[in-house]
């Protein structure tokens, strides 16, 4: 277990001649939580896409558990929910569980629906449920395969107070089973009570700020 869950070296990204990320060096270890904060346009979402394997950086390398072929072990919560509006909540989770090769996808989907408090919405199509509930469902979708690396791009947006505490519980549970968790956020208020390292992303540069613990 001496392998980082995520290791980025010299990652740079440019769109045309516009630099978005510059020489990002980053490591994330199993069982630890890192938060990356930055204003809109600082490159957070681009960085998240690169870490999740959705974008290829212009230069530099990203390794997940030492390889570039570890998609099965990554769970991503993005700005978009990745949920099919015309499928029901249960069907969506079942579909993703199948893609990740999980046993008994139906049963697993129902278990996760209970866990996020949406068992009553199992047969509701996603287009008919609220934005907050869709975000809960997106959390379940990302975590359904018990990923060893969890990447969340502003997971607390659109969530109410109960939703935020649910998301925090899920983060804690992931850390407890040894997963590494990366979160981006505007601020860190929502992370109160959790141990985490904080990085700032400013104009494409990633800088470690300080180890902190906000009293919860």
């Amino acid at each position: 277990m001496t392998q980082p869950a995520l290791a980025a070296h010299g990652v740079a990204m440019t769109f045309g001649v516009v630099p978005v990320l510059r020489n990002v060096e980053f490591e994330l270890w199993p069982g630890s939580l890192v938060a990356i904060s930055g204003v809109n346009g600082s490159g957070k979402s681009t960085l998240v896409k690169i870490f999740a394997g959705l974008l290829r950086p212009t230069s530099g390398s990203v390794a997940v558990f030492g390889t570039s072929q570890a998609r099965r072990r990554v769970g991503l919560v993005s700005h978009q929910s990745f949920l099919y509006p015309r499928l029901t909540a249960a069907e969506n989770l079942e579909f993703y569980a199948t893609l990740y090769g999980l046993g008994d996808p139906r049963e697993r989907a129902m278990r996760w629906l209970a866990r996020i408090g949406l068992e009553g919405f199992a047969d509701y199509r996603v287009r008919t449920i609220s934005r907050g509930n869709e975000q809960r469902l997106a959390l379940a979708r990302a975590l359904i395969g018990d990923p060893d690396l969890v990447i969340m791009d502003e997971p607390f947006t659109a969530l109410d107070a109960d939703g935020v505490s649910l998301a925090k519980d899920l983060i804690k549970a992931s850390l407890a089973r040894g997963a590494a968790v990366l979160i981006t956020a505007h601020g860190t208020d929502a992370l109160a009570g959790l141990d985490f390292e904080l990085y700032d992303l400013r104009a494409g540069r990633l800088e470690r700020r300080r180890v902190e613990r906000i009293a919860g």
Partner: peptide, 14 residues
């Protein structure tokens, strides 16, 4: 493309 599902497919181990 709705809700970015294509990204969900692309990051899945398929």
């Amino acid at each position: 493309r709705e809700n970015g599902c294509i990204a969900g497919l692309l990051i899945a181990p398929v």
